[in-house]
Amino acid sequence: MFNFFNKNKNSDGVMMSPVNGLCIDLSEVPDKVFSERMIGDGVAFIYEDDMICSPCNGTVVMVADTSHAIGIKSGEIEIIIHIGLDTVELNGEGIKVFVKTDQKVKVGTPLVRIDRNFMKEKSVNLTTPMIITNTGDFKLEFKNTGKEVERSKSEVIKYTKSE
């Protein structure tokens, strides 16, 4: 009769920045898969440090064999963090993964550390998109694009379940 206790806890929420750096609009990513939002909508990051952390509480649902991407499910929302561009070609070199599939994570849980010197030697573009892959299910609001953000402290995406 009353739905006071049956609300979906994750019907709306926020994604925090997984890095310290600049949050940019996806249209600025120099890769059409991301800039044209072929796999979903989100934001990207240009950053100078080496640690990428979980932007939300959830469960790791995918770690790419080549360590270049991590998928997380938080409630009904599904995200993918793609570490750099063309990093799939490195076959995991220069990327140390700290999580595994089915592992529970919280905001700030370390996901990967990149070897920045190795990436520089290989001329890798480390622009890192964070994409919500099931965007059709949610209304998204992007926060702090064009601004410096702080890992685990700055909101970058607010989402609300579409009716």
Rank of each mutant, 00 (worst) to 15 (best):
V97W: 12
I114N: 05
P18Y: 06
D50V: 07
N20Y: 12
T133F: 11
K139W: 10
K106C: 12
I39C: 08
M62K: 11
Q103N: 06
L26T: 08
N20T: 13
Q103P: 00
D31C: 10
T127S: 01
V14H: 13
L85A: 03
I80K: 13
M62F: 10
M62E: 11
R37Y: 06
V88L: 02
T101I: 12
G92W: 04
E89G: 00
T87V: 02
N20K: 09
F34R: 03
N20C: 05
T135S: 15
T133Q: 12
D86G: 03
D41N: 00
M16D: 03
D31F: 14
P30R: 13
D102K: 07
M119N: 03
S11C: 09
T101P: 02
C23S: 15
I52C: 09
K139A: 14
D12F: 06
K139P: 10
V33S: 05
A44H: 13
A64W: 02
N134E: 13
I46W: 05
I70W: 05
V19A: 02
C23M: 11
V124A: 02
D65E: 10
D12C: 13
K100A: 12
E78F: 10
F45K: 10
D49E: 15
V19M: 06
N57M: 04
P129N: 15
G13P: 09
R116M: 07
V105G: 01
T133I: 14
D25W: 07
L26I: 08
P55D: 05
S35E: 12
L126D: 07
K96I: 15
T109N: 13
I114F: 05
V124K: 02
V29T: 07
F138N: 10
V99A: 02
G40P: 03
R113M: 15
K106S: 15
A64P: 02
S35T: 04
I95G: 00
G84M: 04
N125F: 03
G58R: 00
V33E: 11
N57L: 08
A64K: 11
K96E: 14
V124W: 09
T135N: 07
V33T: 14
R116A: 07
K139N: 15
T128C: 01
K104N: 12
E93S: 08
T135D: 08
I132M: 04
P18K: 04
A44R: 02
E36T: 11
R113E: 15
D25P: 13
P129D: 00
G58E: 09
P110K: 09
G21R: 10
E89A: 02
E89R: 00
I52D: 01
S17N: 05
V14F: 12
D25I: 11
E28K: 08
Y47C: 09
T127N: 11
G136N: 15
M16Q: 11
G92Q: 04
H82D: 01
I72T: 10
I72E: 02
I46Q: 06
I131Q: 08
D41C: 00
V61K: 15
